[in-house]
Amino acid sequence: MSRLSPHPLLAAALCILACAAPAPRHGVSLEPPIPRPTFTLTDTRGKAYDFARETRGRLTFLFFGYTNCPDVCPVHVSNVAAVLHKLSFEDQQRSAFVFVTVDPARDSLPAVRAWLDHFDKTFVGLRGDAALVDSLMGTLGLPPAIRAAPTEPNGWYEVGHAAPVIVFTADDVARVMYPFGTRQLDWAEDIPRLLKVGR
């Protein structure tokens, strides 16, 4: 009785083809890819949050913004949240959204928590020294935030900041980031693909 025994190289090639995750269709490709950074900031419970350790092996959405942001931050975050809510429970457990405030002077930990709770109670909010956050952004290839002088009598001011969502896949590498303007449909198409990367 003969048994089908494929050539080892052919089997390997087939496996690579079968296992290759489909590439995301939207966003901006990062060349070279960015490894998952190692940093520790304070989370909204007031505890140290080791980003690399807490998010390792999970699809991680990293976003820098501030809670007084009038438009870009809430729209961008809510669009990711809307699509994450439509994922299966298992896929939601394999995903993490981490928000780092670029405006620590105004964004207290409770303020960050309250703001994130509008979108999702599981979203992680981090706060740290402005210089530390700026240098972290630099390691990710983002320009530092620009904190303008107060323009309103009540002391309100805007913070200029890069607003892409950087996505780290399960293999702890970011190959793509999503600028403001990414639609929910785009996320809905890419997130399932990104969940397959590195598994």
């Binding site: 438009d71 809430p74 729209v75 809510s78 809307a82 303007g181 639609r183 929910q184």
Partner: peptide, 21 residues
């Protein structure tokens, strides 16, 4: 529709009362 169809309303400054969808 499961997702907002129009980018102009989806990416508009947020409306506190309800979501774009």
């Amino acid at each position: 529709s499961r997702f907002p169809m129009y980018g102009i309303y989806e990416l508009a400054p947020p409306w506190e009362v309800w979501s774009p969808l």
